[in-house]
C-alpha cells in the first residue's frame, strides 16, 4: 500500500515541479520578497516589521496559489488526459490514488515553503532585518492551513473542471478567513434565511483565521500553545474528512 501511495505522490511531485505554473509562482514569490528592499525607505521606523510581515504574507499567498491552481486540476487532469486508465488498471485502490495525489502536492508545498523561507531569511539578512526563528511558527501554521486548502481543492477536483475547482477553493479560502464574521452575521441579521445560511456556512466551512498568527509573531506577542495545538488537530481532522469525501465520490465513478 505505502509503495503505491508513495509512487503516486512522487509522480505528482514531479509533475508539479516540472510545471511552468509552479516555477513562475516560485520565481515571483522570491521577487516580491526581494522588493522589500525597495519599500524599505518608505516604512518610517517600522522597517523590520514591514519586511517581516510582507515576507510572511508573500509566502502564504504564493503557497495558497500553488495549492489552489495545481490542486484544482490534480484529479481532473488525469481523467481528461486518460492517464487515469493506466493508474486504475493497476492494483491501485481509489483511496490510495487520492491519498497519493494529496501527499504529492503537500510535498510540493512543503518544498516551496522551505525554498521561500530560505529566500525570506536571505532578504532579512541582506536588509539587516532581525531574523528571529520565532517567525517560523507562522509558517508552520500556514502549512496546516495549506493542508486543509489542498484537500478542498482535491475534493472539488474529483467532480468539477479545474477552473471551477480553483474558483471554489479560492472562495473557501476567503470565506474561511471570515467565519467569525459569519457567526456575527447569524446573530445580528433579522432575516431568518440569512441566519440559517450563515450558521450553516459557519459550521461547514473551515475556520482558517485560526492559522493566521502573522501579527503575533511579527510583534513578538506570546503565542498560546494550546490554541496552536487545537488548530493543528482541527486541520488534521478537517483534512481527513475532506479526503474521505473525495474518496467516496471518486470510488463511485466509472471511467
Amino acid at each position: 500500500m505505502t509503495g503505491r501511495v508513495a509512487s503516486i505522490a512522487l509522480n505528482t511531485f514531479r509533475e508539479a515541479i516540472r510545471d511552468k505554473v509552479f516555477l513562475t509562482l516560485l520565481v515571483f514569490a522570491i521577487l516580491v520578497m526581494g522588493s522589500a528592499r525597495v519599500i524599505q525607505p518608505l516604512a518610517l521606523g517600522e522597517e523590520s516589521k514591514v519586511i517581516q510581515d510582507l515576507g510572511l504574507s508573500a509566502i502564504t499567498l504564493f503557497c495558497v496559489l500553488i495549492a489552489v491552481l495545481i490542486g484544482g486540476r490534480l484529479v481532473y487532469k488525469e481523467v481528461e488526459k486518460r492517464t487515469i486508465y493506466i493508474m486504475l488498471a493497476r492494483p491501485v485502490r481509489r483511496w490510495e490514488f487520492i491519498l497519493g495525489k494529496y501527499a504529492g502536492l503537500m510535498a510540493v508545498l512543503a518544498a516551496s515553503l522551505v525554498v521561500m523561507t530560505v529566500g525570506f531569511y536571505l532578504v532579512m539578512f541582506i536588509t539587516g532585518t532581525p531574523a528571529s526563528a520565532y517567525l517560523l511558527w507562522s509558517l508552520l501554521m500556514t502549512f496546516f492551513e495549506l493542508a486543509i486548502l489542498t484537500a478542498t481543492a482535491i475534493l472539488f477536483s474529483t467532480f468539477v473542471t479545474p477552473i471551477a475547482s480553483s474558483v471554489f477553493t479560492f472562495a473557501v479560502y476567503f470565506v474561511g478567513h471570515l467565519t467569525r464574521d459569519l457567526r456575527l452575521l447569524a446573530a445580528m441579521s433579522p432575516s431568518p434565511v440569512v441566519k440559517v445560511v450563515s450558521q450553516v456556512l459557519y459550521y461547514v466551512l473551515p475556520n482558517l483565521s485560526n492559522f493566521n498568527i502573522r501579527g503575533e509573531v511579527v510583534h513578538d506577542v506570546v503565542l498560546n500553545p494550546e490554541a496552536l495545538a487545537l488548530a493543528i488537530g482541527y486541520a488534521l481532522l478537517y483534512t481527513a474528512t475532506l479526503l474521505l469525501i473525495s474518496t467516496l465520490i471518486f470510488s463511485r465513478k466509472d471511467f
Binding site: 509503495g3 503505491r4 508513495a6 509512487s7 503516486i8 512522487l10 509522480n11 514531479r14 509533475e15 516540472r18 510545471d19 488526459k81 486518460r82 492517464t83 486508465y85 493506466i86 493508474m87 488498471a89 493497476r90 492494483p91 491501485v92
Partner: peptide, 28 residues
C-alpha cells in the same frame, strides 16, 4: 493483468525510464 489503453497518453513530463519505474511501483 497488464493493460494498454487505446491511443495511450502518458505523463509527458516523465522520461520513458521514470514512467516505467512508476508503473513498476504501482504494479508491486
Amino acid at each position: 493483468v497488464g493493460f494498454l489503453p487505446e491511443s495511450p497518453y502518458f505523463y509527458e513530463y516523465l522520461t520513458a525510464t521514470e514512467f516505467l519505474r512508476l508503473s513498476a511501483g504501482l504494479a508491486g
